[in-house]
Design a protein around this nucleic acid. Structure first.
Lengths: 110, 110
DNA sequence: CCGTATCCGAAATGATACTG
DNA sequence: CAGTATCATTTCGGATACGG
């Protein structure tokens, strides 16, 4: 009979976790958006300038998705004209170093 | 006037690198495929079993894309019946630890 | 055994005009 | 300023049948 099955599974990849990770980075702009934001706080218009060729619909949609995922926070100021600021959440800051490492992958295969 | 502009750019994310990195991981199955393969050598049919719900067209397409990217090697044996084996390239093995880290991102946002 | 060819529907992306 | 609404276009994933 089997005894002591520590290490029985050779760290089999978990599709659920991978899908969730891909939600965070996937899309043409999502990862780039997170990396551009970094530890800073940025207004909507600043982000729009940083990603020159993204359409408004897509930018707004990606930001909304990242808020829902818990990657970024959205703070609205009741001013005129309106001001909306985006910042990484604590989870987002936790993930940031790993996401920065992903750029190394790009370097490897370039 | 400005002097000594080392570090003028605060490590601005490079869209080219990021795109390349996303090519490696993106798609519903690509990252999962790499992680399942790991350091092993696997036949086409073995990979097909590991990803039960992937269609043949997509599996063949993803494998071909990963070969072109330089992530995996494809080795054909002139036997009957034919045998085709896939293995990570040296670049692929270099990238593997980072790709495994990506699963942690999934854990963070679960 | 290891794919390719074809077709289809769904999803992602984008251009543009408009609004609180 | 910070988005939403609408429509057009492109890309993706999947089912299935067939080929070397």
């Amino acid at each position: 009979m089997k005894q002591g099955n520590r290490h029985d599974l050779p760290a089999e990849p978990d599709y659920i976790l991978i899908s969730k990770a891909l939600e965070v980075v996937s899309g043409k702009w999502r990862l780039y958006l997170i990396l551009q934001l970094g530890e800073e706080t940025r207004r909507y218009s600043q982000l729009a300038e940083m990603l020159p060729s993204i359409s408004e619909k897509v930018l707004a949609g990606e930001l909304k998705a990242l808020v829902v995922l818990g990657v970024i926070d959205r703070k609205v100021y009741a001013e005129i004209p309106p001001r909306v600021e985006y910042t990484l959440t604590s989870k987002g800051r936790l993930a940031l170093p790993i996401l920065r490492l992903l750029q190394e992958i790009g370097r490897i295969f370039n």
